[in-house]
Design a protein around this nucleic acid. Structure first.
Lengths: 186, 186
DNA sequence: GTCTATATCAAGATAGAC
DNA sequence: GTCTATCTTGATATAGAC
C-alpha cells in the first residue's frame, strides 16, 4: 500500500530527532522550541506547523518513545514464542534493559510531566498493561510484583542517578532475580 | 541558649512554607518567585534578599526536606536503640514511609533537577549514606539491596503515579519484605 | 530586612507572505 | 508546508528608597 498522503521525507520525524538531540546533548532544561528550530534547520513557523505547541511536541516525543518500547516488547514476544519459552520472562528482560533509560530523554519527559501531568499517561498505560500481563502469567502475583519492583527500583535509581551500583551489585541482583523467578512462569 | 542572632520570627522559613504551599496547592509548574511572593505576603525584594535566585530557593527547599528526613531517621534510630531492636529495620521502615512522598514537593524538586542536576546532590548523598548503613548492618548485602530496591520501586511508582497498587498489594508486599528480612539484621 | 519600581530577557505563540 | 517578522507574556533579577 503506497503512501500517497506523505510523499515527502518525514519532517515530523526530523523535528523529533532534533528535539531528542537537544535533550541528550544540551540537557533537559534547554529543550525549547527555539533550540529545536536551531538544531533541526527548519524555521519556527515550520516546526510549529507540525507541533502547534510545546506540549504537542512533548506528546510527540512521548508517543515515539512508547512506540519504540512497544516494538521491542513485540520482538521479545515473538522471540520467546519461537523459542518455546515463557513470554513473561522475556518481557521482564526488556523492562530490565537499560538502553531506553540511558539517555536523558526519559528524565526530560519526566520533568516536563511535573507541569503537564497527563504527558506520561501513555507511558503509564503501557506500564500498567505490561504489569498485568506479567502478573497474569505468573503462578505467584506477589512474587512477580516484587520482581518488577526490584527492576523498577534499579531503573529509577539509574535514571535520576540516585544509588550508584557496581557491576558486581548488578550481576548479583540479577542472579537473585533469576533464582526468584524459578517456576514463576509456566 | 537564647537565639540572639535571629530575634524575628524566621522569614526564611515562612518563605519556604509559601514555596511548598505553591507547589502542593498549585502544582510544580507554578513555582515561580512571583507566586511565592504572592503567597508569602512579602515583597519580591524581601524574598530575593533571603534567596537571591530561584536556584537558591530550590536549594533551600531541598535542604529543609533533607533535614526533616534526617530528623525522622534519627528518631527511628533512638527508638530502635531504646527498644533493643536492630536499627537497620527501623531505618527501612522510615524509608518505606510514604508520608514524605505524598505531597507534590519531591516531584517538583525532581523536575527542577532536570535543569539543575546538582540540586538533588544532598538527597543523593543522604540516600547513599543510608544504603551503606543498612548494607553494613546486614548479614547478606544483596538481600538487603533487593529489599531496598523493592521499596524504591514502590516509592518511585507512587511518586510519579505509575503503577497503581491496591491496599491488598501493599499489604502482601510488606508481608513478603518482612519475611525476606528475617535474620537479615543482627 | 523589607519595600517599590523597573530593567531585561527568554520563550511560546500568531500572522501572513511565499 | 515552510518561511520571516512580530507580538505577548511571564519570569528572573537589579537598583535604590525606606
Amino acid at each position: 500500500m503506497p503512501d500517497s498522503q506523505s510523499p515527502k521525507p518525514n519532517t515530523r520525524e526530523a523535528i523529533l530527532d532534533a528535539a531528542e538531540a537537544v535533550v541528550t546533548e544540551e540537557g533537559a532544561g534547554r529543550l525549547t522550541i527555539d533550540a529545536v528550530v536551531a538544531r533541526s534547520g527548519f524555521s519556527k513557523g515550520g516546526v510549529l506547523y507540525h507541533f502547534p505547541s510545546k506540549i504537542a511536541l512533548l506528546e510527540g516525543m512521548v508517543a515515539r518513545l512508547m512506540g519504540t518500547i512497544e516494538h521491542d516488547l513485540e520482538a521479545a514476544e515473538t522471540a520467546a514464542q519461537q523459542a518455546g519459552e515463557p513470554v513473561a520472562s522475556h518481557l521482564l528482560r526488556v523492562i530490565a534493559d537499560k538502553r531506553h533509560l540511558e539517555s536523558d530523554l526519559p528524565v526530560a519527559l519526566l520533568a516536563a510531566s511535573a507541569e503537564q501531568p497527563h504527558l506520561l499517561d501513555p507511558a503509564r498505560a503501557l506500564n500498567q498493561r505490561l504489569w498485568e500481563r506479567i502478573r497474569d502469567a505468573s503462578s505467584d502475583p506477589i512474587q512477580a510484583l516484587i520482581l518488577l519492583l526490584v527492576i523498577d527500583g534499579m531503573s529509577f535509581n539509574d535514571l535520576i542517578k540516585f544509588k550508584q551500583f557496581s557491576d558486581e551489585d548488578r550481576a548479583a541482583v540479577k542472579a537473585r532475580l533469576i533464582a526468584m523467578s524459578k517456576d514463576l512462569f509456566q
